[in-house]
Design a protein around this nucleic acid. Structure first.
Lengths: 238, 238
DNA sequence: GAACTCTTGTAAACACCGTTCACTGAAACC
DNA sequence: GGTTTCAGTGAACGGTGTTTACAAGAGTTC
């Protein structure tokens, strides 16, 4: 059964422990506590031994980010599956709520991923995860019509590129889309919506509202309502 | 003229040099480069000497944040003064543009202040600076009418608190406002607008758009249009 | 089973960090 | 002139990421 040799199994096990130790340190004591020596201490080994598994402290943090994003993707997937309404608008709303809920429940993880830009040129990790789930949903909404004239022509080139990204994401789920379904007007609103959603969640997690908000959820819901109607979803009773 | 003694003058001069060295290090090499030893090296002194001026590395960074925000406030003030249109809508737009421009021109400073929460409970530094300028402008817009029924009643308490904050900010400029001018509906939209503005700028500065945007300015302008009309300003020809 | 290689870990060291402490020397004060 | 105040020093402590030389065990080959 186990094709792996004994050595490979041990190595995999140690690597798992490293990741888990790093994760625990992050959650319990924040980003600065995730040091090589602290991780090694938890495993009962010395710091240089970690270099047998990761090239550098940075590489380890990058791996940690990947783990976190994979976990978030799984959480969003679960929450989406829990929505049995069948209505696409509800599903999109469910994913948005799931994103906010996850971020609030994992502030340290959220902060780490947010503060660790993978590629200098866009391609944010959270954006990838979210839009990979929400993209197909938004695209499958047939009764949304946004004329392309609405969007500034300067943005056409960028939007076409993003259109391709979304199309690829949908294609991974075995669906192909016509241009008129995923038109530039809709793409444009998807981007604006993501900026609003991500912006709101980031500001909320980091506690950066201009005043102390005792309960930001209604504000989030209100923003979501406008966002969804902008995208082309009919108002849904909650 | 100079009431200060020789010793006091020297001390003030050294402190100025410390701040400037810290600022240079931040701008040129990022947050992590702002170490006590690096600053001391620039001044030709030793690191412990800095403890005669600041209680800790953290305190020095906090001072740096204050300097940065003061600079930004000055820049926004200048840009606002440069707008001679006389129309309030244009002035608000000018401040928003100035905020984005400053953030893009000072990414390291923006990142430092953003990543250094002053108070755990809200009271973001950028929010204070911006709303202190934009608050009076927005409040002075007479022809905006937003009924209070629009805003979720759960938020009333928070919005009243923020209303007081804005009123105080305006009062510092010698203006007092009636409740009907600065009603809760308007306050609500101010908050939502600030979240959008701050969110957009943060995502743009940190390069976190879901795809590589070659020119985010039209997107910003478009968002600003909707934002201003939400707040109650008539569309303005640019 | 012996010899060899490959892998995993260690210990020591380097250069850096924030911070503390005892101490010097000069300016300021009386 | 004697005393106090204070900016600055040098050494030290414990922390960090990282490199290096080395040991010891696991796996492989003959």
């Amino acid at each position: 059964m186990t094709e792996a040799t004994r050595r490979e199994r041990l190595r995999a096990e140690t690597e798992r422990e490293i990741r888990q130790a790093a994760r625990t340190l992050l959650v319990e004591s924040g980003r600065d506590a995730v040091t090589l020596r602290a991780i090694a201490r938890k495993l009962g080994i010395t710091a240089p031994a970690l270099y047998r598994y990761y090239d550098s402290h940075d590489a380890l943090l990058r791996q940690l980010c990947d783990d976190i994003c994979a976990d978030m993707a799984a959480a969003l997937h679960t929450d989406l599956a829990a929505d049995t309404s069948g209505q696409v608008g509800c599903k999109v709303r469910a994913v948005c709520h799931a994103f906010r809920r996850w971020a609030l429940a994992h502030p340290q993880e959220f902060a780490l991923v947010f503060a660790s830009p993978r590629d200098p040129l866009g391609a944010d990790q959270f954006g990838s995860v979210f839009l990979q789930l929400a993209g197909p949903l938004i695209a499958s909404n047939e009764d949304a019509h946004h004329v392309e004239e609405e969007v500034p022509s300067v943005l056409h080139e960028d939007l076409v590129r993003f259109q391709q990204v979304l199309r690829d994401a949908v294609a991974e789920h075995g669906v192909t889309l016509a241009d008129e379904v995923l038109n530039l007007g809709k793409i444009y609103h998807v981007v604006q919506s993501w900026v609003r959603l991500y912006g709101h969640v980031a500001l909320e997690v980091f506690g950066r509202f201009p005043f102390a908000v005792s309960n930001p959820e209604p504000m989030f819901d209100s923003m979501l309502d406008q966002m969804l109607s902008d995208i082309g979803f009919a108002q849904v009773e909650q």
